[in-house]
């Protein structure tokens, strides 16, 4: 029993961290731009494909492969996805900033479809699943008879480092201060000389790069990547952000852990739970929207009448 508990705890923490990283991107973009970027999951899940392509390109160009070069390829992917986020903001999302929320929502859903179809058609054999390597392998330690892999430690430590860095960036840097100001009152931020275009560009880069890391971990956890993984990654990340409170960073982390917890509990204790895990997750999302629409750590929504 103890073994089962520890094993599920390890699964919960690993998944929870990945979902939290996905949710942080949603929350950051919503908090600053007041736009629900529904294609964020698809943007995030381009990273495994870019990493695979970069690894192959490195192998062909300079004849190198192995863990170090895989790390280089993932770094290239993270940077490239950050840039993709910035470009998508410039080309598409910027135009819906002051439009009714429904327009931005439809536009970003459509953008997600475009991204998926582009991967499917442009990536070699894009319709098929592609094996994605574990970014860290081997057993790191053993707790109550359960082997905890280096991958789990990588996911947890990377998440902790990213969360700390993000908080430090937002709290301690001039750009972070401007991002927080623009997220509270865009008009007054402009009166304070803050160029919102720069703020949005930085926000998209950071959110998309964090999403890319989540995408790499997601594919690495699954051992495979598919062109349509972005749909599920997006839904789970968005749900985590909603449960925690859209716009709240601590809320995004909490939401990610809760969703992963429900998934793991369902798989462990409900007969055929793996098939029903998403039912429980989305029932919880509906429950939160009904009884606490602002999310667990979100600010109440005030409507001026």
């Amino acid at each position: 029993m103890a073994e089962l508990f520890v094993q599920q705890l390890v699964n919960w923490v690993t998944l929870g961290c990945i979902y939290a990283l996905l949710a942080i991107g949603f929350s950051l973009i919503f908090g600053v731009l007041n736009v629900i970027h529904f294609s964020h999951g698809d943007v995030a899940m381009t990273s495994p494909f870019i990493a695979l392509a970069a690894a192959q390109a490195l192998a062909i160009a300079i004849g190198v492969s192995g863990p170090v070069w895989l790390t280089v390829a993932t770094c290239i992917a993270v940077f490239a996805v950050g840039l993709i986020g910035v470009i998508l903001d410039k080309v598409v999302i910027r135009r819906f900033r002051d439009a009714p929320a429904m327009m931005a929502l439809v536009a970003t859903v459509a953008l997600g479809i475009v991204i998926r179809e582009l991967i499917r058609h442009l990536y070699p054999q894009g319709s098929n699943p592609h094996a994605f390597p574990r970014l860290a392998s081997g057993v790191a330690l053993e707790i109550a008879g359960v082997q905890v892999g280096w991958f789990t430690l990588l996911v947890v430590s990377l998440t902790l480092v990213l969360v700390v860095l993000l908080f430090a960036f937002l709290r301690l840097t001039p750009l972070g201060l401007r991002i927080r100001a623009a997220s509270e009152d865009r008009i007054v931020a402009r009166m304070m000389g803050i160029r919102d275009t720069r703020v949005f560009r930085a926000t998209f880069f950071v959110a998309s790069a964090i999403g890319a890391i989540a995408g790499l971990l997601f594919a690495s956890y699954a051992g495979v990547t598919r062109f349509d993984f972005g749909v599920m990654a997006g839904l789970l990340g968005f749900s985590a952000a909603v449960i925690g409170g859209l716009g709240s960073m601590p809320g995004a982390i909490l939401g990610g852990l809760i969703i992963a917890g429900i998934e793991v509990l369902a798989q462990t204790f409900v007969p055929d739970g793996a098939s029903y895990r998403l039912v429980f997750v989305f029932l919880l999302v509906i429950g939160v929207l009904l009884f606490r629409p602002e999310g667990l750590l979100g600010r109440p929504v005030m409507v001026k009448v």
Binding site: R180, A181, V188, A189, M192, I194
Partner: peptide, 14 residues
């Protein structure tokens, strides 16, 4: 129209 969740010092810094 201060930035409500920013501290007073952060508002002044801006």
């Amino acid at each position: 129209r201060l930035f409500p969740s920013l501290t007073v010092q952060e508002n002044l810094r801006l």
